[in-house]
Design a binder for these strands. Structure first.
Lengths: 119, 119
DNA sequence: CAGGATCCGTGACGATACTG
DNA sequence: CAGTATCGTCACGGATCCTG
């Protein structure tokens, strides 16, 4: 499948637009992709670990975006009855389907950074 | 290259985070990816065509996001000395490097939509 | 036709303090 | 530790009008 196949003929809306809209609705927010990337690369993470590794994010935002990601079945949340309580976040099998996107995004980002540095 | 390779050892920041941040900085904004997708699938487009096809966008936003995309060398802007004046936007060779990302995003979006509809 | 100028509301985002 | 509550801001985004 190539990118032209995403266009339906005549005056109908391009399928591409709908699909991208759907994807963006799930991935919107300043931190979601970074959170997913961190979890995908690093396995299980606790709240505080994420707070440290996704640096710059505030606890409120992390909490909120984690909830939204969980709603969309992209990550799972597990409460461990330790003392004090700890919580583990992990990417789901469904969430792993985003790996290709993340990879392409990462590759492009690195190329782009090099291109900027060279001028 | 797989996603684990994006992690540098020990306490350093993951390379993945930097790359994704770079990419997101270029692609941020509600409409950029949709604009790129439309141009990539449909070839040259004039301002009014984009205004129609990227539906929901306001002229101000379209203008602004097109400028930013041009700054980043992802699209080109050509003024035709017709009367009244018309302008053509086209994706650049550099911009075409985003094709893989767009494709993966589109594929995932379609799968996700189906998954939602089925429940 | 392409888009700039202006005005304006909302909500995304952030800092801080607090709780079980 | 893992959050929630509260408050504040600013810029993102939209509507409308105007110009070459």
């Amino acid at each position: 499948m190539n990118i032209q196949d995403c266009i339906t003929p005549c005056t109908q809306k391009p399928k591409l637009v709908l699909a991208i809209r759907d994807a963006m609705e799930v991935l919107n927010g300043k931190w979601k992709i970074l959170i997913i990337g961190t979890l995908m690369a690093g396995g299980k993470k606790r709240f505080m670990e994420l707070l440290r590794e996704v640096d710059g994010i505030a606890a409120k935002m992390l909490s909120k975006e984690l909830q939204e990601l969980e709603m969309h079945k992209l990550i799972s949340r597990t409460v461990c009855n330790t003392k004090p309580i700890t919580v583990e976040y992990e990417i789901t099998e469904y969430g792993k389907k985003l790996e290709k996107i993340l990879l392409e995004l990462t590759n492009w980002g690195m190329e782009h950074r090099e291109m900027i540095l060279k001028g």
